[in-house]
Design a protein around this nucleic acid. Structure first.
Lengths: 225, 225
DNA sequence: GATAAAATATGATATTTGTCATGTAATTAT
DNA sequence: ATAATTACATGACAAATATCATATTTTATC
């Protein structure tokens, strides 16, 4: 398994602020984990005792609503640290994590990294900064959810997927989500999500093959209200 | 002005983790600020160079949506630290803060507190913990916004106001908000907010005198779907 | 490859929410 | 005190979204 010291992925998160020595220690105690598409990584209410560093793949963080539906709160991607909250509190996790495609992650036990958190101010500040950014993103999501139409949110998640994860050789979005996932991200009924995607198709904004989606008119999506 | 060392308010936030010496230094450089109901504390896009410690009163944090409406993202109350993000990043603030009633706050310049953040791990961890909790709250808000009806969200904000800020001698909610504020918290049109409150009134769940609201049937509100 | 199961699609309809118009009550300014 | 402004209220209607029913297609399983 790759060593943290020489791992490129850490450059995307606060682990980059650890010293070489700290990284070597982390590297020695981390465990590599593979998750397959659809696999549960952890579930709301579990106790997490460490963080995951995402080497590849994408997962969704969901929260169960009182009405029984899962709501996607955030997508976690390559380079992200998953489970930061567990470092800071002993509370059970408030979210579930499910892999959206095959994932490689490194799991770093909390015990091993807590010392660094209190002794390496650069690292701490970096974690703080990450959380502050998460908080900012969260604010944006809330406003989107409260003020934008389902159609617009759907257009935006398509563009987001395109921008963040790109397309395969045929131009289809690399991340393949079920209609149910789209509904859960956008915060609507599955049928509504399906209907809107169908409509986008009719309007020539996207095309689909099975569940794979290709954006045909990115600019058109921008104009959706 | 009250000294931080002996100020009870700090017990509600991470300032409690500062040492006596640190607190005295903070106390020496802080400035007391008064804001009147409706007054702007800071605006989206401004640069904040410090944090506010709320001694009394409540303010709303809002974000301007693309459609031109303000969305309330969070209510900040006595004991909260306002502007934590400014400690961590140099970015401009992504939210506006407006007093909902008369407020007393202490402003602590960033420069004065940054040292503590890097040298007092207990303080840092506390700030981290606060942010983690903010993030958790934020997730809950997002799910509520995405999955609950406007009516339910309205019922919940009324109960929240009751539970967090209590009532005056006549049983009316202590925090008096305009219908527009309610709309902006709940994420709906002002007319819809008015309509729902009217309906609650007809159903005997609340009563109103001017803009003051009294909860008549707390349990009934709980059952709103 | 046939069959079962799950996901996608779509119609019909109900419900929720938004928008525009207009009126009334409450505040504020003069 | 009166006029002017702002907040609140409500009707009428339109638009967005949810729900239920039922095909159809895709995927998984043996």
């Amino acid at each position: 398994m790759s060593k943290c010291e020489s791992c490129i992925v850490k450059e995307f998160n606060s682990l980059k602020s650890l010293t070489r020595d700290e990284l070597m220690r982390v590297s020695a105690c981390k465990t590599g984990k593979l998750y397959k598409k659809g696999q549960l990584i952890f579930e709301e209410g579990e106790t997490l005792n460490g963080v995951y560093c995402v080497r590849s793949g994408v997962c969704k963080l969901t929260k169960l609503s009182e009405n029984g539906k899962d709501q996607v709160v955030k997508l976690v991607v390559k380079g992200d640290l998953l489970g930061k909250r567990s470092l800071v509190t002993d509370q059970k996790t408030n979210l579930s994590a499910v892999a959206l495609n095959d994932m490689e992650m490194c799991f770093i036990p909390k015990s091993e990294i807590m010392d660094d958190l209190s002794k390496n101010p650069k690292f701490t500040m970096d974690v703080l900064r990450e959380m502050a950014n998460d908080l900012k993103d969260s604010d944006v999501s809330l406003v989107n959810m409260a003020q934008k139409s389902v159609k617009k949110r759907m257009a935006e998640i398509l563009m987001y997927s395109h921008d963040s994860f790109g397309t395969d050789d045929d131009g289809y979005l690399s991340i393949v989500l079920s209609r149910e996932d789209y509904a859960s991200i956008v915060g609507t009924a599955t049928e509504s999500a399906i209907r809107i995607l169908s409509q986008f198709k009719k309007e020539g904004l996207i095309s689909t093959t099975g569940k794979r989606i290709k954006i045909e008119d990115y600019n058109g999506l921008k104009w959706i209200e």
